[in-house]
Nucleic acid binder design. Structure first.
Length: 207
DNA sequence: TTCAGGATGTACT
DNA sequence: GTACATCCTGAAC
């Protein structure tokens, strides 16, 4: 199965956050394959970013994941009830990552709906369908990602990213014209000057 | 449609 | 004890 190599994650975090948009996240769960398109990301860089858990190279049991080789998953627990998925970037020893904030379901939608709401997609309200995977806590619930998945190697089989649906044997949809938008990150108002860094990126369909 | 408020547990001071 | 890279509900408009 073709997938993004460790090299893809090794470069600049802000560039990697943009490069991940439009790629496909693949999650293998008990024999089933869940596939989603990545639509929204944020960059976090410990070297210079007060919003990053590992700002100024602060290393604890939790943040040690960020210092690993690029191409690992950093999954942490927040607000007492949610998990967030990140991909570790930059060379080993540089704590940095891309947070995955938004996805579109491509395959396995029914399973994701049951994981998130405990019922099939057809029984969801319009509001629930519209807000299915548009937040970091939501997509972790739908993909059954928890701290047990922290440090997962993205070059393995359980969780990885690929360029094209053809890489995993699925038909490719017709291309859609989209542009990359950027703006300040969400929920980092405490981070002083770093709160205004335009390190949030998302895809917007052209009219 | 937007908005305020509460739920909840872990990491770190 | 405090803060937190969030989400849901219910009420007002």
């Amino acid at each position: 199965m073709a997938r993004l190599s460790r090299q893809f994650y090794a470069g600049d975090t802000v560039e990697t956050a943009q490069n991940l948009l439009g790629k496909y996240l693949v999650r293998r769960l008990e024999g089933e394959t869940l596939v989603c398109r990545i639509t929204e990301t944020e960059a976090y860089i410990g070297r210079c970013d007060k919003a990053c858990h590992a700002y100024n190279y602060r290393k604890t049991d939790r943040t040690a994941t960020l210092f690993m080789e690029p191409g690992h998953a950093y999954v942490y627990f927040i607000y007492g009830m949610h998990h967030c998925l990140n991909f570790v970037t930059e060379p080993e020893g540089e704590p940095a990552a891309v947070l995955i904030r938004g996805l579109e379901a491509v395959a396995g939608r029914e399973t994701m709906s049951c994981l998130r709401y405990g019922k099939p997609f057809s029984e969801l309200t319009a509001y629930q369908r519209k807000n299915f995977l548009n937040g970091p806590g939501k997509l972790c619930k739908a993909l059954a990602l928890t701290r047990a998945d922290d440090r997962t190697d993205l070059t393995g089989d359980a969780l990885f990213v690929c360029d094209s649906l053809a890489d995993i044997g699925l038909p490719c949809p017709a291309p859609v014209r989209e542009t990359i938008c950027s703006g300040p990150r969400i929920g980092v108002d405490y981070a002083e000057e770093a709160r205004d860094f335009p390190w949030r990126f998302w895809l917007k369909k052209e009219a």
